[in-house]
Design a protein around this nucleic acid. Structure first.
Lengths: 253, 253
DNA sequence: TTGAATAATTAGGTAAGCCTAATTAAATTA
DNA sequence: TAATTTAATTAGGCTTACCTAATTATTCAA
């Protein structure tokens, strides 16, 4: 059954309401979804036509068996995604809730299936070092608290600060700030400092991008760089937490 | 700048086209986005009004500096998400591509930021056992190839098959098939068998859900269970790969 | 049991994002 | 350079999902 995102939301809200109160009313739905009552009425008629709810004008709203099945499915996807976002990515509950709302409509069952496996893998698999997820979450939490690079991650990052740290033969990792004009490479990591990370991402700089150092502009304390064909600037501080993999296979113009 | 998903898509397509051909035409955009040419014309007028592209009737389309910046950002989010979906979740490239398209519009910068950190953590952090992601991917790939539980995961799963495997004092893990009517618990893991996993998820059964065994129906070789208040059925085979955490804190009615 | 308050619906409108059919502009080629 | 083909635009429509203002049901309380 293919129904629009909006109708899915209505169904989910009705499911939630009927669990608590045994029935749903137009007014409550309107309040929760933050739309006007006429909008709800209209949506109810559509859901009723689709055989998902039992609804007649001025009467209370209840799910049909078919509606219950679909709502249950949608609700549980939402529930799982919320768990993933809080348990793995350590988002705050309200934030996770709203992000899950947006995600639940777009994900294919196949992707979802893999996310479930990843979730289980990280939280349950006996092979996975349990400190892994704990460390990762602690890192995120720490970023947030102190708004600077957390101790727990400094170890990881420090390893990349040896400019000649060799990974496999000819590939070396350097910090963006140490790159010479014309030097190119692929971004492998952006340090965990929360605010700086956000700002770097907002400039369209992600791990995996190809980056070329154009020049340093000391006036504005920034580096001018070219990221996948687009010029942008990075502050000197930001350039200290961007790690680039400079390989010998790339020609350095 | 807040623009609609559809306009973001147009911008991304123009960015991509201008990288290859130095300009974009209505016809090409229409073909890529799979919409009619008049729809493209209309969208171009909107983008032009927003100052994101340089466009006059019958002329070629080019991004303004402002448009380039935004397109670059959108494009790189897409690029990163594709990498996450292929490198971590091991989706096929085409699938990852199309899923990234859907995801890129819904994710908040904060969630994205954490996904980037998780990606880096799993692929680069020296603390993370490198075999972890490799194993996880191998597991996924193996599921797909043989469509049965892969050897690499059987070890994990087997541990849960000891019905009295005790985790922390009073909590024990059992398989759904071994639960008695009236017994309740929380789903902690669904075995890796690909097709069965998908079918279980489609029934709205996810890790984290509360599940209660109602009864076994030998006629249809299924178990009737209640998942978070909703009754559904699970085949005997499926019940063999659903692991439930049965705690003493839950009363068993 | 009848008013007042609350809840729900009609009626009529808007915006985004599509569409088809018809027309016009630009490019190509004979 | 005129005819033909290709590309782009107008014009007019549709659907979804909203909205406000006005009206009608229902419920509650005096």
């Amino acid at each position: 059954m293919q129904i629009s995102n909006s109708l899915q939301d209505y169904l989910k809200i009705i499911f939630d309401l009927t669990k608590q109160k045994k029935f749903a009313r137009i007014k409550d739905i309107s309040k929760i979804k933050n739309v006007s009552m006429p909008s709800v009425t209209e949506a109810m008629r559509k859901l009723s036509k689709l055989g998902l709810i039992e609804y007649h004008a001025y009467e209370i709203i209840q799910l049909t068996e078919k509606g219950k099945g679909l709502a249950h499915y949608i609700f549980n996807i939402h529930h799982f995604l919320t768990r993933f976002l809080t348990d793995i990515l350590n988002l705050k509950p309200e934030k996770a809730e709203s992000e899950a709302c947006k995600l639940e409509h777009s994900l294919d069952i196949e992707t979802l299936e893999r996310m479930v496996l990843l979730y289980q893998y990280l939280t349950s698999c006996p092979k996975v070092d349990h400190s892994l997820v704990k460390d990762f979450k602690e890192c995120l939490a720490s970023c947030e608290r102190k708004n600077k690079m957390p101790d727990i991650c400094r170890d990881c990052f420090v390893k990349t600060r040896f400019p000649h740290y060799v990974k496999q033969g000819t590939v070396k990792h350097v910090l963006l700030k140490d790159m010479k004009p014309g030097e190119k490479g692929n971004i492998v990591m952006i340090g965990p400092h929360l605010e700086m990370r956000k700002n770097i991402l907002k400039k369209g700089i992600f791990p995996g991008n190809e980056i070329e150092m154009i020049r340093e502009d000391r006036e504005i304390k920034s580096f001018i760089v070219n990221v996948d064909g687009y010029n942008t600037s990075v502050t000197s501080n930001e350039a200290c937490i961007i790690e680039v993999e400079v390989g010998s296979q790339k020609e350095q113009s």
